[in-house]
Design a protein around this nucleic acid. Sequence first.
DNA 1: CGGCATCCTTTAGGATACTG
DNA 2: CAGTATCCTAAAGGATGCCG
Lengths: 110, 110
Amino acid sequence: MTKDKHLDKAIPKGCPLDRVFRLLSGEWTTHILWVLSQNGPTRHGELRRLVEGISSKVLTDRLRMLEANDVVFRDYEPTVPPKVTYGLTAVGKELDQALRAMQAIAEHWT
Amino acid sequence: MTKDKHLDKAIPKGCPLDRVFRLLSGEWTTHILWVLSQNGPTRHGELRRLVEGISSKVLTDRLRMLEANDVVFRDYEPTVPPKVTYGLTAVGKELDQALRAMQAIAEHWT
DNA sequence: CGGCATCCTTTAGGATACTG
DNA sequence: CAGTATCCTAAAGGATGCCG
């Protein structure tokens, strides 16, 4: 556990490729990244609408995971009601590019 | 189920990227591909030695999965004892390249 | 609104033993 | 040698309800 409760889901060291896969291979994860890259910074509620079928719990799990590994940022505004926005970090955008490349390759070998 | 018992684990259609992730994100899978690309066509037993820690069952599961999706080929020689060799297909090699690209990206953002 | 806590079901994966 | 079969545990993920 780290000091910041939001950062306690960082993937342990090891083969870098393996880390990426552990980070991304959970259900919904790539879908979330896709939506964030299409939509720009998005609030929790809208994200849950856009990623159709995901439960609040799993969405939060994924976002925590991604945040802990610097792929998304979380912006919390303590208004009433609170407003929380998620978006891709620089690393997240880079990762997104890599995913699009894989997507391109995936498309032409069906 | 398909007619050929070796081909009944093909990943269902959907988002191509999602298919790739479902195919590769099981434990050991990328490690197996790595070994096959380093080592060339490899027999079941040696593969199990090279992918240290994997069980026979999981190894077979992964190979079936990869074979059903045309990433590896399986060569069976019905001698006594039988000799079975696995290797990367053309598609498998292409996929391997994509993985190396992801690996490269993964490496420089710790 | 955002998101924990809890519970429950499903799936993945390891251990072991056995066979053509 | 190259698997299957069986069993078991651990982890993932869905449903629901509550709270600041």
